[in-house]
Lab assay of single mutants.
Amino acid sequence: GKELVLALYDYQEKSPREVTMKKGDILTLLNSTNKDWWKVEVNDRQGFVPAAYVKKL
């Protein structure tokens, strides 16, 4: 099944490779191999968020 993460904080994208999320959002985790930036999918968009801003559910 898909792995989900919870947004712990708001995050505003700073580049086209990133995505914006709001605290409390549930996101689909696509890739967590990089310890600093995790790739997630939110609202049919894929991009990176800081790993410290999310936690695995």
Rank of each mutant, 00 (worst) to 15 (best):
L57D: 03
Q12K: 14
V54A: 03
E18T: 09
N31Y: 07
K23Y: 05
Q46V: 15
Y11N: 01
L57E: 04
P16F: 09
K14Y: 05
G47W: 04
V19N: 04
Y11P: 00
E41F: 07
D25K: 04
W38S: 03
V49R: 01
G24M: 03
D25A: 08
F48A: 02
N34D: 15
A7I: 03
T28H: 09
K22S: 09
S15L: 08
K35P: 14
Q12R: 12
Y53T: 07
V54G: 01
V49S: 01
G47Y: 05
V40M: 02
L30H: 05
S32Q: 09
V40F: 00
L29E: 00
Q12L: 13
W37V: 03
L4R: 10
G1T: 15
S32D: 15
T28L: 14
G47S: 02
R45H: 07
Y11H: 04
D10Q: 04
K39E: 14
Y53K: 07
A52P: 08
K56Y: 10
D25V: 05
V5F: 07
L8M: 09
K35A: 13
A7T: 04
E41V: 10
V42S: 15
Q12W: 13
F48Q: 03
V42N: 15
D25C: 07
A52F: 09
L29N: 00
V49E: 01
F48W: 15
L6S: 05
E41Y: 07
I26K: 05
P50G: 02
D25F: 05
A52S: 14
I26Y: 06
K22T: 09
V42W: 08
E41D: 07
A51K: 07
R45F: 05
L29V: 06
K56T: 08
R17G: 14
T20K: 04
F48P: 00
W38E: 01
V19L: 15
T20C: 06
E13I: 06
L8P: 00
P16V: 09
K39A: 08
R17I: 12
T33S: 14
D36W: 15
Q12T: 14
D10H: 06
K22L: 09
N31T: 08
Y53Q: 05
T33D: 15
N31D: 15
W38G: 00
G24R: 02
A52T: 11
R45S: 06
R45V: 08
E41W: 08
G24P: 00
N31W: 08
L27S: 02
V40Q: 00
Y9W: 11
W38L: 04
T33M: 11
W37P: 00
P50N: 02
K35F: 09
E3T: 14
A51G: 04
N31A: 10
Y53V: 06
A7M: 02
K35G: 09
P16A: 13
T33F: 10
W37A: 02
D44Y: 10
E41L: 10
N31E: 14
D44S: 12
V54Q: 00
N43A: 12
K23E: 07
K55Y: 11
L6P: 00
G24T: 02
G47L: 05
T28Y: 12
A51Q: 06
L8R: 05
R17Y: 13
K14D: 06
D36T: 15
G1Q: 13
W37H: 03
K23G: 05
V54K: 01
R17P: 06
G1A: 14
E41T: 08
Y53C: 11
F48H: 05
V54S: 01
K39I: 15
K39V: 14
E13V: 07
Q46K: 10
E13Q: 14
G1D: 13
M21Y: 02
R17N: 14
T33N: 12
N43M: 13
V42D: 12
K35Y: 08
D44G: 15
D44I: 06
D36V: 15
L29Q: 00
V19T: 06
L29Y: 02
V54C: 14
K35E: 11
L27R: 01
K35D: 10
K56I: 14
A52W: 10
T28C: 09
L30Q: 04
K14H: 09
D44R: 10
L30C: 07
L4C: 11
R45L: 07
K35V: 12
A51H: 03
V40W: 00
P16L: 09
W37L: 04
P50T: 02
L6W: 07
K23Q: 09
L27V: 07
M21R: 00
V5I: 08
V5Q: 00
F48M: 08
Y11C: 02
E18S: 07
S32L: 05
K22V: 09
Y9E: 10
V40S: 00
G1H: 14
G47M: 05
D25T: 08
V42M: 14
G24L: 03
K2L: 13
T28M: 12
Y9K: 14
L8A: 04
Y11L: 01
K14W: 04
K23H: 06
A52E: 10
E3N: 11
L57N: 03
L8E: 04
L6D: 01
K55E: 11
T33C: 13
L29F: 03
L6V: 15
K35R: 12
L30E: 03
K22Q: 10
L57K: 04
A51M: 05
K14S: 10
D36S: 12
L4V: 09
F48E: 04
L27G: 12
Y9L: 10
Q12H: 14
Q46T: 12
A51L: 02
S32T: 09
D44W: 08
Y9T: 07
A7H: 01
L27D: 00
T20I: 03
L4I: 09
E3V: 14
V19M: 13
Q46F: 08
L57W: 09
S32A: 12
W37M: 06
G47N: 01
L57Y: 09
M21P: 00
D36R: 14
W38Y: 08
L27A: 08
V19C: 09
W38M: 04
D36K: 14
S15C: 10
I26L: 09
E3Y: 11
K55G: 08
V42A: 14
V49T: 01
D44M: 11
K35H: 12
L29I: 05
Q12I: 14
N43T: 10
L57F: 09
G47V: 05
P50C: 04
S15W: 06
W38R: 02
L30K: 05
N34C: 10
W37F: 06
A7D: 00
Q46W: 09
A7N: 00
E18K: 04
L8W: 04
V40R: 00
K22H: 10
K22M: 09
S15A: 09
G24Q: 02
D25H: 06
T33H: 12
V5R: 02
G1N: 13
K56C: 10
V19D: 00
V40A: 02
I26H: 05
E13K: 14
K55T: 14
A51T: 06
R45K: 11
N43F: 14
N34G: 09
M21D: 00
V54W: 01
D10C: 06
L27Q: 01
Q12G: 08
L27F: 07
A52D: 09
S15G: 13
A51W: 02
I26S: 03
D10I: 02
V19R: 02
E3M: 14
V42L: 15
G1I: 13
L29A: 02
V40H: 00
K2Y: 13
A52N: 13
V5M: 05
M21G: 00
E41M: 12
Y53L: 12
N34V: 05
V49D: 01
E3A: 12
L30W: 06
K23R: 11
T20R: 06
L4M: 12
R17W: 15
F48C: 12
W38I: 05
E3P: 12
D36F: 15
L4W: 15
V5C: 13
V54E: 01
T20W: 05
D36L: 14
N43P: 12
K56M: 11
P16W: 10
K2M: 12
V5G: 13
Y9D: 07
W38A: 03
P50Y: 03
A51N: 02
L30N: 02
K2N: 10
K14A: 12
R17E: 13
K35L: 10
G47D: 00
K39L: 15
L57C: 13
T20V: 03
V5N: 01
